[in-house]
Design a protein around this nucleic acid. Sequence first.
DNA 1: TTTCTGAATAATCAACAAAACGTTCAGTCT
DNA 2: AGACTGAACGTTTTGTTGATTATTCAGAAA
Lengths: 208, 208
Amino acid sequence: MAEKDTVREKIVEAAKKRFSHFGYAKTTMAEVAADCDMSPGNLYRFFPGKLDIAEAIATEDYLKHLEHMRKLAMAPGKNAGQRLRDMLFEELRRTYHKLEKDPRALDMARTISQERPQFANWMLEKEREILVELMNEAERRGEFTIADKTFTAEMVQSATMKFRYPQLWSRLTLPKLERELDGVLGLLVHGLCPHLSAEVRAATHAAA
Amino acid sequence: MAEKDTVREKIVEAAKKRFSHFGYAKTTMAEVAADCDMSPGNLYRFFPGKLDIAEAIATEDYLKHLEHMRKLAMAPGKNAGQRLRDMLFEELRRTYHKLEKDPRALDMARTISQERPQFANWMLEKEREILVELMNEAERRGEFTIADKTFTAEMVQSATMKFRYPQLWSRLTLPKLERELDGVLGLLVHGLCPHLSAEVRAATHAAA
DNA sequence: TTTCTGAATAATCAACAAAACGTTCAGTCT
DNA sequence: AGACTGAACGTTTTGTTGATTATTCAGAAA
């Protein structure tokens, strides 16, 4: 079984190289198999199909990214709004740079999210867990007031959809996208209605 | 000149019928010309090209829709949040139903927004004007506090992108989309931070 | 002169054949 | 028996050819 995992890893590594070098569509199972000194048929003892190899690569990659985002979401010495901002900016920059420096990654991303919508769902769900943690912490400190946190996390994701696969939905440059994300987050955090600034809150306390 | 406009209108009408019956791609300039009892070449004295006829149709249609939205945005006896909600719900429902009952409209929408990105910009800009009017009115009544209204309108549009061409970016049903839009608007209006409810505001006034 | 036509042109599309590919599985090797 | 191969199969992609189509423009009609 440990042996099997080693072989699996070997396949993933070979595929990773091919995919990033030539793109998902342009690498064949035969090539990946050859890189691993095995026959094409043998790949299927480790993965149900080509797309599943891509999914394994994407999963590995995203789990690393999630760790990073969790750190930003829980960073000490910052208020909740700032941490939310850091987290979503990190997400924007990561995907932007990934697709920028390696346009070959785009067809893989596109194929996966088209053929495996459930995978895109899984990513959102994982991110949502972090958002809920962030909100719990924020509420504990009185920074946010949120009734249904999972629902609210979904709404935050919905409102920031545009920044999740930036070059899929617009041709904006990174600085423009950052400015826009900043603006949207400002709205999400403070709202359009007059909000409870520090001074107003003090006044309210005095009145009580 | 009045004569020219009549001919233009005739062409638009003929094209409208063809486009909605057979789709944009499947109707030929020759057919539209025949419907107007003229030669294909003559169409080009009135429109630079086929796509410009489609754009004229879309413009006419959107201007009607804008009027409707402006009415909702300025409806008396409702607070600003409610009017914003009515306006964006109308937008969602309109495009959803249009593309639902007439999937032929989709290829036209897709072609226009692909080949003429500036047209999509024009639509957003026009809608933004209404949003700014709504915000001005809301600020006058103390319902919203907004520094840069045009920028804020842009951010509202950015956060609600997903609901603008619903079936282009997701496969959600109308009820699910409505629920989600409602949630996002709740967030945009009230924000995540504790906000100034009516009672709190009264307390603040008392303290002052 | 001004308005319009319709054949000419160049670009795009559709249909079809050939090649390449993902996937399977009968059978070989260890 | 379990691990693996590679030819075979059906699907998808690619390349090619012929037809359609948007657009132009020289010239006819008004």
